[in-house]
Amino acid sequence: MQISSDQITVENKLDSLLALYAFIDQFAKRSGASDDLRRTISLVVEELFTNTVSYGYPHGTADQIRLEILLDTRHADVTLTDHGIAFDAGIAREVEFGTASAEQREIGGLGLFLVHQLADSVTNTRQTGTNVTHVRLPVPSRDTGAEAP
């Protein structure tokens, strides 16, 4: 696996997920990241992006959202920058499920919970109308020993 970084900027529409997935797949291939790491990055980006697009623009304002991925031997740093309403994804989400069966289980609230469970850290900063959400993911040990394909 190689130390790499790349970025892409897309419109604040759910259809932009297709471009983001293609970008992540290419990035993972180029850097020699494992399928496990590629899937985790994809999931985190999907959850954060979908959340921002769904709730960040109550007036339907057009925006450009930037995704940056930085990969080194120990971490994958995923950073999303948007100009939607203030929202702190860094606050840990608790989902109460305990022993809930399907009938008792509530729908919703899972996205950010998953992000927090998979990440080493989730932080959010807001400055002059810009949200920067940064997620640090652990790189599985097998990635660091793996040869790039």
Partner: peptide, 21 residues
């Protein structure tokens, strides 16, 4: 299936709720 996100889980749960009774 490559991966499942929370929207995928939501669909799984909706169907599981239908099956549970």
């Amino acid at each position: 299936v490559d991966y499942v996100t929370s929207f995928g889980l939501r669909s799984i749960l909706i169907v599981a709720k239908k099956l549970a009774p």
